[in-house]
Nucleic acid binder design. Structure first.
Length: 336
RNA sequence: GCCAAGGUGGCGGAGUGGGCAAUCGCAUCAGACUGUAAAUCUGACGCCCGAAAGGGCUACCCAGGUUCGAAUCCUGGCCUUGGCA
């Protein structure tokens, strides 16, 4: 039976180390579900758990599902940390855009491979959308972005965007909640989908939009903690990353031609340094902002995961929580 | 001691006679989320009642005063900062 263990939770709570511990115990391999760790060369800021000498190992049996996704012949591969394989890092160059659709395509290849080798898959990370998309599927992933359209819509106000959408797809427009109606990015994507759908219908291509769910026996575990504890951890972690050489990492990225406008550089821990590098702002300012933003991010993650009723929560400040997790996983693992 | 500027909500900072419970930013709380998701976006945020509409109360350093009406004007006090002695 294919078994998939999912470990979610806010940043800095210790998901990866739990994943590694469980992987050892239950013969598993870890896959990162993190929209930023996919970028090659962004290690410190995104918190890839790499030990000093861990090297990327290419698995040449595995191919990218689409040659366009592959870059520089790097291929698919993994890092080994404490004897456990970690996949999902270094999938793209930081100059490239990346999105859920690509993530699920690539990761499904990896998952199939791990299952084929009879091992447990442990998916862990803080990007809720990626996890949900991978497991439950997304109907409209097959509709690619349309850069020209996006550009032409980018000047419009939210009201104009909403009116445009209401004109093309009134049902979709009416179904949007009050927050999304004011969210330009969402409105643009909705228009993109609406247009695609309507053209498709006209050409009688009618692509069957459907969710493709992952076929596996899945257990969801969530790690949580009181906010003070979390924020404290975040603070320490940010400082560690500063000491660990985030500035140098950014310098190297910039040196390789990565720009502040690139999607990858919108990541926490990177964008906060823009004014430091560009206008000589104090690094204390960057660090303070980084911590602040990281806290907000953790809260957003909690909001996202809270609504998924499949998740069994463990508070990492409770004594013996780890044993409880292991117990739960074991019970599930040996069940059929 | 004199001169100047100023004291506003948890913080920063607008407002300089009525539209002010007070723009905005931060923080905080709650939430959304289906190819940018570490992104993007929404709501609440003096106190009390109310599901809401709405109503009531207390407020812009303190004390007085002018005025139909003051965060805004006047007087006195206290405090802060800068300059001169």
């Amino acid at each position: 039976m294919k078994k998939l263990l999912v470990i979610v939770g806010p940043t800095a709570i210790g998901k990866t180390s739990l994943a590694i511990a469980l992987a050892k115990k239950f013969n598993g391999e870890v896959i990162s579900a993190d929209s930023r760790q996919v970028y090659k060369g962004m290690d410190i800021g995104t918190g890839k758990d790499l030990s000093r000498n861990s090297k990327f190992q290419r698995e040449s049996r595995l191919l990218f599902p689409n040659s366009k996704l592959e870059f520089r012949n790097l291929g698919l591969g993994f890092y080994t940390v404490s004897g456990v394989r970690i996949w999902g890092y270094d999938l793209v160059e930081p100059k490239k855009d990346f999105s859920v659709a690509q993530y699920i395509k690539i990761v499904r290849v990896i998952i199939d491979d791990i299952f084929a080798r009879g091992k447990l898959v442990i998916l862990t990370g803080g990007t809720g959308l990626y996890i949900e998309a991978l497991i439950d599927g997304i109907e409209t992933v097959s509709i690619p972005p349309n850069p020209k359209l996006r550009k032409s819509l980018s000047e419009k106000t939210r009201d104009e965007l909403f009116d445009t959408l209401a004109h093309i797809d009134p049902i979709k427009a009416a179904s949007l909640n009050s927050s999304d109606r004011k969210n330009p990015r969402r409105l643009i994507r909705a228009i993109e989908i609406a247009l695609q759908n309507s053209t498709a219908k006209r050409v009688i291509l009618t692509p069957k939009l459907q969710k493709s769910k992952l076929d596996a026996n899945t257990l969801f575990i969530g790690l949580t903690a009181p906010k003070e504890f979390l924020f404290n951890n975040i603070e320490k972690r940010v400082e560690e990353r500063v000491r660990g050489g985030i500035k140098k990492e950014i310098e190297e990225l910039l040196g390789k031609g990565v720009s502040w406008k690139d999607q990858s550089m919108s990541s926490l821990g990177y964008r906060e340094w823009k004014s430091y590098f560009e206008s000589n702002a104090a690094d204390a300012e960057a660090i303070e902002n980084w911590k602040k933003e990281e806290n907000k991010y953790a809260k957003r993650q909690l909001t996202w995961f809270k609504r998924d009723k499949r998740i069994g929560w463990f508070d990492v400040t409770d004594a013996g929580w780890q044993r409880n997790v292991e117990f739960m996983v074991e019970k599930w693992y040996i069940s059929r």
